[in-house]
Amino acid sequence: MALLIGLALQMVLRPDSRRAVSELPWSAVLLTSAIMVYVGVLERTGTLKAIAEHLGGIDNTLLAVLAVSYIAAVFATVEPRRSPCSAWSSHWPPRCCRIPTRHASPCC
């Protein structure tokens, strides 16, 4: 149903697709894609299953919640906050992550 409504709005309003793509927050798209790949690798290697089996053996609920919190903190430190280059520059977007031009300066 939502797809039909979206299709009807697309046909009635006819937004400019170039403008929509240019205003897309690409950092969020890349971060979401990276997280999906990361979770896929964890799942394929069996890491998520192993973690679930270990957490399933904990009888104390509070201890299980603490263990999940520690695991989430470890995984959160592996993922970059905004981009891999954000640690190298204090300004967003960093020079090394911008689209290169003829006169682009080298990364930091």
Rank of each mutant, 00 (worst) to 15 (best):
M1K: 11
M1I: 05
A2S: 09
L4F: 07
I5P: 00
I5H: 08
I5Y: 07
L7S: 13
L7D: 10
A8D: 05
A8W: 08
A8N: 08
L9C: 12
Q10E: 11
Q10H: 13
M11S: 15
M11C: 11
V12Q: 10
V12K: 09
V12L: 10
R14D: 08
P15C: 04
D16C: 11
D16Y: 02
R18P: 02
R18D: 11
A20L: 13
A20T: 12
A20P: 02
A20D: 08
L24N: 06
P25D: 10
A28S: 09
V29K: 06
L31T: 01
L31N: 01
L31D: 03
T32F: 06
S33L: 07
S33F: 04
S33I: 00
V37A: 03
Y38R: 07
V39L: 08
V41F: 04
V41R: 04
L42I: 00
L42G: 02
R44S: 06
T45A: 03
T45K: 02
G46N: 09
T47P: 04
L48T: 06
K49F: 02
I51P: 02
A52K: 11
E53Q: 13
H54P: 00
G56E: 06
I58D: 01
N60M: 13
T61I: 14
T61N: 09
L63D: 15
A64T: 01
A64F: 00
V65Q: 04
L66D: 15
V68L: 13
I71V: 15
A73C: 14
A73T: 13
V74T: 15
V74M: 14
A76M: 13
A76F: 05
T77Q: 14
V78E: 07
R82P: 02
P84Q: 00
C85D: 03
S86I: 01
A87L: 14
W88R: 04
S90V: 04
W92F: 07
P94Q: 01
R95W: 03
R95K: 06
C97F: 01
I99V: 11
I99K: 07
T101P: 00
R102D: 02
H103W: 08
H103D: 11
P106W: 08
P106H: 06
